[in-house]
Nucleic acid binder design. Structure first.
Lengths: 223, 223
DNA sequence: GATTGTATCATTGGATACAAAAATCCGGAG
DNA sequence: CTCCGGATTTTTGTATCCAATGATACAATC
């Protein structure tokens, strides 16, 4: 088999898993655009398998909200309306707010230092021009969520990040780097340092809700 | 074909959808028990189709967290540990908290009256002994969520309810009716009537988190 | 010239067949 | 009696095939 691209590491044993990862990655980086139809045969050929595992991957992607699957109409890339984008951010705000609150008792000095390091990496990625910033930003948020030690919560938040990632990338391509990003994330660390869980939760909520309007500007009314 | 149960309405055209509904229903009412293996062929035979649509339904159910799908190991009904049950309730608390907050500006006198009616139905179902109470309870919470007018939020909350429904039923079978249920839900309506969105959110959070410990008693350590 | 009906084509959904992996069973050795 | 190893059986994963549905283009009629 000639898996030309993305062959770093033996990710998984099943073909369905491979298809899922492949398509998700393509969606995240915006290779497939909203409204575009995903042809099972094309994708199957691309990664060297038959249509079937691809079809099954479609189901999961649909559950994640990344594609829309209409009977006998195939699979189209899900685009977000402005309303839906806000909805995602509302959900993120309360879920990640919960995550920091739960993370609070589990975090120590080392953990806080790690977060500072991640903040620096994010900053550097932002200045370098490549849009790695988006990845670093997710890494920062992901680290905090991970501290909560709640698998289902982490999974859910991660799924929401995947949905908005394409828009984050477009956003980042327009403006060099989110202006207040460094202060806001530094404020999150400070809130964690304070030891006041309720306060940290509120800071996270405000941070996320505050981001939404900036992103909303770049939602193309693709429907 | 003889679709014995739940044949109200022509739900959908595709076999996969039928399989999904069938299995989900069976899981909700506890017909399939945690840890039990779901044999694709058996279920396929049961509803008169081949393994394939059933397999695809498994993917969605796995995304919902209702079953666990391990490569080459098949599909087993997801059981919850006590920790996982608490996690679900934590997520519910913030998501439904968000839902009431968003519902607040959209609710009017008629809406509040509707909720009162649903509360009465819940009460009657609780006294009748049949475990319709669980359904009515979900109906009550679902109505509030619906008022938020947030499709993705509603969907997510609904998925969480599905996961805990079997445990709610077991719980209800032991104790006749949750003791403080009526007061708590009446308090929710009162909070909505007050017009204070933040307060209503807090009441919802407390209500849901308060329920978790009672349910946790009935989680069989099935793993 | 526009609109509607019809025929053809492409694509999806589902079933069957086949291959690969895991679980089970059975026998033998320690 | 227990533990290990191999063959068999069961079950899962994937591919191919067939039927059915939706899209499209062309033609006929208004």
């Amino acid at each position: 088999m000639s898996s030309s691209i993305a062959s770093f590491g033996q990710h998984s044993s099943t073909a369905e898993e491979e298809a899922y990862r492949h398509i998700q990655q393509a969606l995240r980086i915006g290779r497939y655009k909203p409204g575009e139809r995903l042809i099972p045969e094309d994708i199957a050929a691309e990664i060297g398998m038959s249509r079937m595992p691809v079809r099954e991957a479609f189901r999961r992607l649909a559950s994640d909200g990344l594609v829309v699957l209409r009977p006998n109409r195939g699979c189209i890339v899900a685009g977000l309306t402005v309303d839906e984008l806000y909805e995602i951010f509302e959900m993120r705000s309360v879920l990640e707010g919960l995550a920091v609150r739960l993370a609070m008792p589990r975090i120590d000095e080392d953990g806080l230092d790690d977060l500072e390091r991640l903040l620096d990496r994010m900053e550097r990625a932002g200045q370098s021009g490549s849009n790695d910033w988006v990845v670093r930003h997710q890494e920062f948020h992901g680290r905090i969520c991970a501290l909560s030690q709640r698998p289902k919560l982490i999974h859910q938040i991660s799924a929401l990040h995947a949905v908005i990632e394409p828009y984050m990338r477009i956003w980042f391509d327009y403006i060099e780097k989110p202006l207040s990003a460094r202060e806001e994330h530094a404020a999150l660390i400070a809130a964690l340092r304070s030891g006041d869980a309720g306060h940290a939760e509120q800071v996270m909520r405000d941070h996320i809700l505050g981001t939404a309007p900036m992103l909303a500007e770049f939602v193309t009314p693709s429907r």
